[in-house]
């Protein structure tokens, strides 16, 4: 028997430490996303409130909400606990933290080179611009759009792939 040769996993190793399969993860995400749509009527998104969060920072420095609206739409009426996406975003960070802690594998991973700093800054800005132009990110304009039979979801997938191909070349050439 193959099982007998493998080390027997403890309860913790089997249910908290062991990783899930990709397919199990995908199925769980679909079930969660669908339950969110059924209850709230709104599809899962991630990046929608990012611009407003940035705007709030400028507001702290005295910039008025009216003048920020061009850069951060809806900033005047924003309320964290009324915005579904803001709440699920907080949940994603906390849920991931919870998962690594329960698996006892949390570790602060520092950046090791200036290349990584440049990659994070450039990549972050490009994702921000891209997600707003496409009206959503890999979640809002792909995971919640393509399955809804929306052509923009298919278009996003195609151009996301082309961008990822160019990005892979840049990664190999400059950031690795």
């Amino acid at each position: 028997m193959q099982n007998e040769t493998e080390k027997k996993l403890s309860f913790w190793e089997a249910y908290f430490k062991k990783e899930w399969s990709y397919t199990a993860g995908g199925v769980m995400l679909v079930i969660l996303a669908v339950s969110l749509v059924v209850v709230t009527g709104k599809a899962w998104g991630v990046t929608g409130p990012f611009a407003v969060w940035g705007g709030k920072l400028f507001e702290l420095f005295g910039v008025s909400a009216e003048s920020l609206n061009f850069w951060a739409e809806g900033i005047a009426t924003y309320d964290f606990f009324k915005d579904i996406v803001s709440m699920t975003d907080l949940g994603i960070v906390l849920g991931a933290l919870l998962a690594v802690l329960l698996a006892a594998s949390f570790k602060i991973k520092k950046m090791k080179s200036w290349r990584q700093v440049v990659a994070a800054v450039l990549g972050g800005v490009l994702m921000g611009i891209g997600a707003r132009l496409a009206l959503g990110c890999n979640i809002g304009s792909l995971f919640s759009a393509l399955p809804a039979f929306s052509l923009h979801g298919w278009a996003f997938l195609l151009f996301f792939f082309l961008g990822a191909a160019v990005g892979s070349q840049m990664l190999k050439r400059y950031f690795m």
């Binding site: 891209g130 082309l162 990005g167």
Partner: peptide, 8 residues
């Protein structure tokens, strides 16, 4: 948007 997002 999709293209820039992919690179980023």
């Amino acid at each position: 948007g999709g293209f820039l997002f992919g690179i980023g």
